[in-house]
Every structure is written in structure tokens, then in C-alpha cells.
Design a protein around this nucleic acid. Structure first.
Lengths: 159, 159
DNA sequence: TACCCTATATTTAGCGA
DNA sequence: GTCGCTAAATATAGGGT
């Protein structure tokens, strides 16, 4: 059996699990922050409310955070949000990417299904278009058209 | 040839590399922040000075950061730093862990080296202690003592 | 509870277009 | 410069102790 499953991105219901996950991920996060900071020469800070101690974890340190905050406040309001990478842009980007992936998977499925139909037809299978349409009920219109064209070509090929 | 090497944790000298790394890692960071937030029900914010646009990336949003900041300021000064996980504690923890790993690797090396010497001796190799000391010049005192004892035992064993 | 381990899942460096 | 891809590096869930 697999030792690890993909975790669903939602609140961990089990409290002890949540605690463990928090500790691990907090550590990882801080590591990544420090890496970004040194690799790219970037001023970074974060503040994480630790729900288990009702205290905050602050990176890189209290004065460090305050220094970044001061710098942040000194940027003109208009400039602050320009190029800003935040929850909104992040989400938009992810939706975009996911759509793109879905598109690709659809293409791949189309390829495979078309291949199967060709194989089926070439090896003397049925040419019952209606039946195959049924099988491929949920497919895109474009795909159906492709398949229709394919059937015609296969018929022509076979005589 | 390997397509990817382990990057040294220091400022990336090549500017374009740095830029690419920044974009990728910033994305990853924000993803992890959002995961921590939803998995563990945690208030999080971060502010990253984007050195390439002289602007800030703010997570999760400007009001979001301000809300966390307000909460942060409302915690009594003494409580703020209790349990705080920051650059210092992070570094201490990593030093501790690294030492522990070094210790373990030493133990493992000892085990392997001792094994080799035993094999060498049992298969009729030399018993020249001085020579073997030379080979094992950098080893711990404890290891040397262990080996000395081993030589004696092997000699006894062989007659 | 708080570690440690290790098999999976995830991140990302290096490339090629 | 940007993108997508892929393999190597890394993070971490689950399961021990």
C-alpha cells in the first residue's frame, strides 16, 4: 500500500495532525524564505500566528520585520501595488495554469481515443458511427467532428 | 551527465539567473504560505521586496497584511517573543541538526572502516598496525583505540 | 508528545524553443 | 526576456519509537 497520499487542500480536521503539519511546514517555509533571501538578495519578512501557542513566529526577527515594514511604508501608495504578487494574482495564475493542464489532458485523451477507434476500425471492427458517438458521449464537438472525418477517411482507405 | 547540480546557498551572481530563480521561488513560497494557511487555519502574511521592480509582493493582500500586523501589535510585548520561531532559533536548530548528522556519518564511517580492516586482516592482509594508523590518520582517537583492540582480537583469533 | 525514518509528493535548476 | 519540460533535489505524510 502507498505510504503517503496526496493531501487535500483543506483544513486538517484532526488536531494533532494539524499541529504536526504546522510544525513541519513552518520549518520548511522559514527555510525557503531564508533561501530566497540569500540566493536573490531580497528583503523578506513574514509573520505567522501560531495558533497553538497564541503567539507569532516572526521572520527574520522583530527588528527585521520592522525594517521591511518601514521600507514598505516609504514606497508611494501607487507604486506599492504595481507588479504586486498577491492572493489575487496568485489565484488567477493558478486558474490559468489549471485550465491549460485540463486543455492538454483533453488533447491527450482525444489522441488516445482516436487511436483506439482507428485501431478498432482497422482491425475489422464496426463502423457504427452512432455507437461510437455513444461511447464518446462527453467529448467535445470538435472531437466528434474529427472522428467523423476519420471514419470517412478510414472508409475511403478500406475501399 | 547530470542535468542539475545542487545550488550553493549564496547570492546568485548571474543577474538573469537570479531573476528567474526569484520568480520561481517567490511563486513556490506563496503557494506554501497559502497551503499552511488553509491546512492549519493560520493567519499568515509576508512581504517580499521585489528587487527587480522596486516594489513589494504582499501576501495575502494589503488589508490582509495589515490585519495580521494589527493582531501582532495587540499581543503584549512579552508574549510576542515567547515561543517565537525566528532567524536565531531557526539557525540554532539547523546547527544542532547538522552536528547530529555529522555525528551519525562519523559513526557510519567508523563502522565501514572497521569492517574493511577486519576483512583485510581476515583475508591474510598485513597486520602492520603503524601502516594502518597511517591510512586512518584523520580518524577519531576512539576509533584508533577500537582498531587497536580489533587487531589484538584478530591476532588472538588467528593464533 | 516529539522526535526519526523513508517513500512519495512537490519544488525547481537547467535547457531548448 | 518568457514559456514549458523534465530530472534532480527537496519537503513532508504516515508510520515507527
Amino acid at each position: 500500500m502507498p505510504r503517503r497520499k496526496k493531501v487535500k487542500l483543506e483544513l486538517l480536521q484532526c488536531m494533532s495532525e494539524r499541529k504536526v503539519s504546522f510544525r513541519k511546514r513552518n520549518t520548511g517555509l522559514v527555510k525557503k524564505l531564508s533561501e530566497l533571501s540569500t540566493l536573490c538578495d531580497v528583503d523578506v519578512c513574514d509573520i505567522i500566528l501560531n495558533p497553538f501557542h497564541s503567539s507569532f513566529d516572526v521572520w527574520p526577527s522583530l527588528p527585521g520585520v520592522q525594517s521591511v515594514l518601514t521600507k514598505f511604508r516609504h514606497i508611494p501608495e501607487g507604486e506599492q501595488t504595481k507588479h504586486m504578487y498577491n492572493l489575487e494574482t496568485f489565484t488567477q495564475e493558478r486558474i490559468q495554469k489549471t485550465r491549460e493542464q485540463v486543455r492538454k489532458l483533453r488533447m491527450e485523451n482525444r489522441r488516445i481515443e482516436i487511436e483506439q477507434i482507428i485501431n478498432q476500425c482497422m482491425s475489422g471492427g464496426s463502423f457504427d458511427i452512432k455507437n461510437n458517438y455513444n461511447l464518446l458521449n462527453d467529448m467535445d464537438l470538435v472531437l466528434k467532428q474529427d472522428i467523423q472525418e476519420l471514419f470517412i477517411r478510414i472508409k475511403a482507405l478500406k475501399g
